[in-house]
Design a protein around this nucleic acid. Structure first.
Lengths: 340, 340
DNA sequence: TTGTAAGCGTTATCAA
DNA sequence: TTGATAACGCTTACAA
């Protein structure tokens, strides 16, 4: 807006009595400047309140330092925890996070990626949604790196970080059975994201392998309220489950509250419950929920580490060095399953 | 990085058989282009996968479209809710959010603001911390706008959004007294931020006006665990309070859990509790907490609205059109105080 | 309505 | 080590 308000390297150079390139070099790590010129420049810069213009620098270097975080439901405990970790590590790596909110509307994710391209982000990290194949390819062709966290393995993108959801789900079955439960249930949302579905499949498969049938119910969008509704549905049946695995902690909290306060059931005596994510609330005394911990900091550091590496390889247009990382979700034992 | 990967307006112009300025105009709302040229340009752009370079555009226009959100403890329910609202509204206003995480270390906030300057952000919105006066002045002189949410009224910055914390605290006293409570307590953190202290002062003052003494305790950093510790301290005394106002919902949840599960007290029969923020968890059945709602969306829309206004006025260097907005925190009645 | 040309604040190249 | 000079990709007078 309006008249030249920010101080430019030119002005600093004039005041310090050096060339503008001397100023540039002073602020470029690893450039050769004599201590004397450096001192003069820094002094002038300080006095004038000069700060490098990253817009111009990014234009020249073809590297903006910006990393886009594409995410929906930022206010959700698990998402915000991951966000915290990512922004922290990005900052330490000398990058800066641009936050783009998506919703469930059509094209929301694509718009986010286009935004990332317009700002010439060095990379985009997707925590939610699935990008259209063509737009993702455009990102990659443009030299933008793409990281997909807990997204589909089918999705395009050079780095994919996933958990062992299905295998984890199997471990819950073991825990439930060991606690003497035989009437298992799985409470899911209708979101249908790959990780959610993998948990469901893994749970059902492991139970079936033991000759146990699982009643599955899906409702809403992975929130507390949906968990309550699911409980209302499953606990009003003639044959109540004696153990339920909820696809996320938020569902589990809602389920547990409904079971206790609306159906006067005691957890874990009459009903064992397990969740997934290990959000902060899972450890609160009122819930004391047995759950799987998302290795949030491991996820974040894998992602940022990968982004900080120079540039993997020459890039042949199509499958650009796709890489997949599978992390382990640790079971956190608490009081919502009998006989820990 | 490597060879020119992104498509430039130049290339689009060549393909479309027009000048580069025609391309520029096509992507500038309100510029004069004939429908025919526009069509040709859009076609070529689509085919080539062209996207305006906001870095270069920002350089020219002296307006980056970037708004920095400076915040600590992003993963906290209230903060992340505010963050959600802000990013959403900013996007709708055609801006983009840059997220900068601060911590309690010295200079953390100043570093964040310097980052904002380097990226030539149009504005910075501070949800946490207090900027050094000199760096804040630098922002303002540089033409960057500053919004302070729930910060000190003393702090520099042209737009300050605050709540009526002290007045709200007074209303809790009334509610407690009406419920028959006489032994009041206030549970605070050691953070000492202006809004927290205002709640404390308002509560104590209103109680004193009624001839009631308040026991005040401060501990930790406004989290669930701190609430538990505070409960342990205040409930092991010979004279237990019969009502406690916690400075935030997170403290209240911790306090309530400790009271119930460690001291077997019944809420609200033996102990009335109130909180502040109205985080999602406050409405969960296990807590059912009476609290004050932060008018999150009002806060966000006031901030973004103000940013979207052209540019208030000519700006005389020092106190640049400082403006203060005071919003009302509504009491949300739930079950943690008797006799709602 | 269109094209030409001059900047915006950097960094990179290349002599000196 | 230093200083000119040419990019980078865009917008915006100004002239046609």
């Amino acid at each position: 807006m309006s008249e030249k308000l920010f101080v430019s390297a030119q002005e600093v150079a004039e005041r310090a009595g050096v060339s503008r390139s001397a100023v540039s070099r002073t602020f470029t790590p690893g450039a050769s400047v004599s201590t004397e010129t450096r001192r003069k420049v820094l002094e002038a810069a300080e006095a004038l309140g000069y700060h490098v213009n990253e817009l111009a620098r990014g234009l020249m270097r073809n590297e903006s330092g910006i990393v886009c975080l594409i995410v929906s439901d930022v206010a959700t405990p698990y998402r915000s925890a991951l966000l915290r970790e990512l922004t922290l590590l990005l900052q330490n790596a000398g990058k800066v996070a641009m936050l783009i909110n998506t919703d469930r509307s059509d094209g929301s994710v694509d718009r986010a990626l286009r935004q990332a391209i317009r700002y010439r982000a060095d990379a985009s990290i997707m925590l939610s949604g699935m990008p259209d194949k063509s737009i993702a390819q455009l990102c990659l062709r443009s030299g933008q790196r793409l990281v997909l966290i807990n997204r589909d393995d089918e999705q395009p993108g050079p780095l994919r970080i996933n958990l062992d959801d299905d295998e984890a789900a199997g471990r819950v079955v073991t825990a439930f059975v060991r606690a003497g439960c035989r009437k298992l249930a799985f409470a899911n949302s209708e979101a249908g994201t790959p990780s959610l579905m993998a948990r469901e499949r893994g749970f059902v498969a492991a139970a079936n392998a033991l000759g146990i049938k699982v009643s599955v119910e899906r409702h809403g969008w992975t929130g507390y309220e949906a968990g309550k509704v699911l409980a209302q549905r499953m606990l009003t049946r003639t044959e109540r489950p004696d153990a339920v695995f909820c696809a996320t902690d938020l569902l589990a909290c809602g389920f547990m509250d409904a079971a206790r306060h609306q159906f006067s059931m005691s957890v874990p005596d009459q009903l064992c419950i397990a969740g997934f994510d290990d959000i902060e609330q899972a450890s609160w005394s009122s819930y004391d929920l047995t759950t799987f911990a998302q290795p949030v900091s491991a996820i974040a550091s894998k992602a940022v580490e990968w982004l900080s590496q120079p540039q993997p390889q020459p890039q042949n247009d199509d499958t650009i060095c796709a890489q997949s990382i599978r992390l382990h979700a640790e079971l956190v034992w608490r009081g919502s399953i009998r006989g820990g």
